[in-house]
Amino acid sequence: MAETIISTDNLVKEYGELKAVNQLNLAIKKGEVYGLLGPNGAGKTTTILMLLGLTEPTSGTAQIKGFDATRDSIAIKRFTGYLPDQVGFYSQRTGRENLVYTAGLNGISAVEAAKKAVEVVELVGLTNVIDNKVKTYSKGMRQRLGLADVLIKEPEIIILDEPTIGIDPTGINEFLTLIRGLSKEQGITIMLSSHLLNQVQKICDRVGIFVKGSLLAEGSIEELAAELLAQKEIDLSVKVKDLSDQVIKKISALDEVIKVEKQENLLDEIYQYYFTGGEIDARL
């Protein structure tokens, strides 16, 4: 069992009356890809900011590798890369200049920074545009530059906030594959937040479902699916080729099926639909 590398202990953040994060207990293991899945306003960004010591918790603690996020945030930032949502660069400078600057802030010498910039840019596939000003970059390129910017400090942990926002679908897939690769090849622990299930599903080993500041469920996608399905009754509509009593009987015979209902008053329903929609079809 791998050790826990990111953890929060009854973490709470209040903005006045609003509890943005409520009694959150997270435990993320070394080397895994963890997804924080939740709708907008769930408190994902707030949680991440507290992990990096960029905002102070109202109560509770957050720790990365045993360092307290509020007191030792500088130590944490030495081995933790953070890609904010809406990441920004100095747009009048080139990609290379931006990367070298970040390296400088991490205490990397200019010579080494130049070497590393080339490596990380290669990794994210921006080699051709490294000497163009960032203002000429597309959103997807900026996001990849953001990843390069995180990688240049050779982090052990990467935290990504909504990393796929604003990228086109093919770009998203490439980007997610890249992130997944970093974890599997270099053993980097990755935590990402997203409001899109299908993306989290694609690359995360474990997912936490986060709503209104609380963690509702946690586990691998399979576990989650099992858990959710076990609890809930789900209405399904089934398309059949040839509706007959035979078919209905067959479906009803399945153990998992609770009830089969034929939709009644189809015409009435259509009528209601039009009526509430403000239009009454002349045929009815």
Binding site: L54, K77, Y82, G88
Partner: peptide, 17 residues
């Protein structure tokens, strides 16, 4: 301007006071 460009959170995520 750094706030609006979104550079500030990237810079403050570096190991500097």
């Amino acid at each position: 301007s750094e706030r609006n460009r979104g550079t500030i959170s990237r810079i403050l995520a570096q190991p500097i006071p």
